[in-house]
Simulated scan of single mutants.
Amino acid sequence: MILWLCAIRPYSAEQLATLLGRQMTALKTNHLNPLREQEGLLRYTHPEVINHPEQAYLTTETGRAWLAEKGIRL
């Protein structure tokens, strides 16, 4: 769900937490950070400034390929 949403447009951690009914800290720790750091499926919109006030997540090309493998069309 996260990859699909972030493939459509960038979402901040707060926005994703609200949409998914999750706590932001847990969402970042358990999902967003692993998808970005370990899997390379998400990226920051402002990678040069981690705490940028408009920081958001986008699905990478690797993430888009993963979605396509699962039959999810964008």
Rank of each mutant, 00 (worst) to 15 (best):
E69V: 01
Y57K: 09
T18R: 14
Y44H: 05
M24A: 10
Y11C: 09
R36N: 10
E61P: 00
A13K: 04
T59I: 04
E39C: 13
A68N: 06
K28P: 00
V49H: 07
L3S: 01
G71E: 08
Q38P: 02
M1P: 08
I72N: 01
A56R: 05
H31W: 09
Q15A: 15
E54Q: 15
V49D: 06
L58R: 13
A13M: 00
E48K: 01
G21M: 07
L19H: 11
R73C: 05
I2G: 11
E61K: 14
I50G: 06
L16H: 07
H46D: 03
W4L: 13
T45P: 03
L58H: 02
L19A: 12
Q55T: 02
V49Y: 05
E69F: 09
A7D: 12
P53G: 12
Q23H: 07
E48C: 00
L5R: 07
A13H: 00
R36L: 07
K28Y: 04
L35H: 12
L41M: 13
K70V: 05
P53Q: 11
A26S: 09
G21V: 11
Q38F: 07
G71R: 00
G40N: 08
H52S: 08
I2T: 15
A65M: 10
E69I: 03
P34Q: 13
L3D: 04
E48A: 02
M24D: 05
I72R: 08
L16D: 10
L19I: 12
R22F: 06
T59Y: 06
E48H: 02
R36K: 09
L3R: 10
A68I: 00
P34C: 08
N30C: 13
H31V: 03
K70Q: 15
I8F: 13
Y57M: 07
L42F: 08
L16F: 04
T59F: 01
Q23A: 12
A7H: 10
P53T: 03
H46A: 07
K28L: 00
L20M: 14
Q23K: 03
L5N: 06
Y57L: 05
A17W: 07
A68R: 11
A7N: 12
V49M: 02
H31G: 03
I8W: 15
L5F: 12
A65S: 12
V49E: 10
T62W: 08
I72S: 02
P10M: 11
G21A: 11
E48V: 01
N30F: 00
Y57F: 15
E48F: 03
M24W: 04
G40V: 09
I8A: 15
